[in-house]
């Protein structure tokens, strides 16, 4: 069965760590990084990348628009 796989790319330096994307993600892919960016915020990263379906929910709730989403159908 074809499976839809996704990848998100977070702009680390612009992420403010509001965590809204974590709650928007239906497959619990995202968590906050242990590291901080230049502004001192923990930034969003893929904790569980295999579960990402590229649904774009995280990207559309992101107030700062820092998430890019790629999606591909894997056979």
């Amino acid at each position: 069965m074809a499976k839809v796989k996704g990848v998100i790319i977070v702009d680390k330096e612009k992420c403010k760590g509001c965590e809204l994307c974590i709650h928007a993600c239906p497959t619990s892919v995202i968590s906050m990084s242990g590291e901080v960016n230049a502004k001192g915020y923990h930034f969003a990263c893929m904790k569980n990348p295999d579960a990402c379906t590229g649904c774009t929910n995280c990207a559309i709730v992101c107030p700062d628009g820092v998430i890019m989403v790629y999606r591909e159908k894997k056979v």
């Binding site: 893929m46 990207a59 890019m68 989403v69 790629y70």
Partner: peptide, 15 residues
Amino acid sequence: MDKTIVKAGNLVYRR
């Protein structure tokens, strides 16, 4: 993370 997915044709959301 599957890096092969990251290519222009697969982009579904960008700023």
